[in-house]
């Protein structure tokens, strides 16, 4: 790990801070404008999920390396109610709230790696990575 930072996300105003930080990191790491936009959009979706459904949580930003490749990894961790059926939660259009149900499935399409773990009553962790 080259560098890391943790941002708290508890309110809808914090979601803006997460977006700004994700953008700043993506710019600094030399991602193209389209890639920056994908990363920031993915960060926005997951941060909002945490605030709306997971009682808020933290976002960890990390610059990582795999051989000569550099990557930006964002990890969203909350201690909320958790998700009982991950497969269902990952389905396009499925929502328990009043959203469009694209947050998780859409975010996966925007990133190179997407890993979700969740335990009912314990919380949810989503780790997303985009490589340069």
């Amino acid at each position: 790990m080259l560098k890391h930072e943790v941002v708290e996300a508890r309110s809808s105003a914090d979601v803006l801070v997460v977006r700004q930080q994700a953008r700043a990191w993506a710019v600094e790491m030399g991602f193209s404008l389209v890639e920056q936009t994908k990363i920031v959009t993915a960060a926005s979706e997951l941060a909002r999920n945490m605030v709306d459904y997971g009682l808020g949580g933290t976002v960890e930003l990390e610059a990582i390396e795999n051989g000569s490749r550099k990557g930006l990894r964002l990890t969203f961790t909350d201690q909320g109610p958790g998700i009982s059926d991950l497969d269902l939660a990952m389905t396009d259009g499925y929502t328990t709230g009043n959203g469009l149900g694209l947050g998780l499935s859409g975010t996966k399409r925007l990133m190179h790696e997407f890993e979700i773990t969740s335990q009912v009553g314990q919380g949810t962790r989503v780790m997303i990575t985009r490589w340069r």
């Binding site: 936009t37 396009d92 469009l100 694209l102 859409g106 925007l110």
Partner: peptide
């Protein structure tokens, strides 16, 4: 343009 590309991949 970058927003349009992202929006479509997101599924909107």
């Amino acid at each position: 343009p970058a927003v349009a590309i992202t929006l479509v991949e997101l599924g909107l």
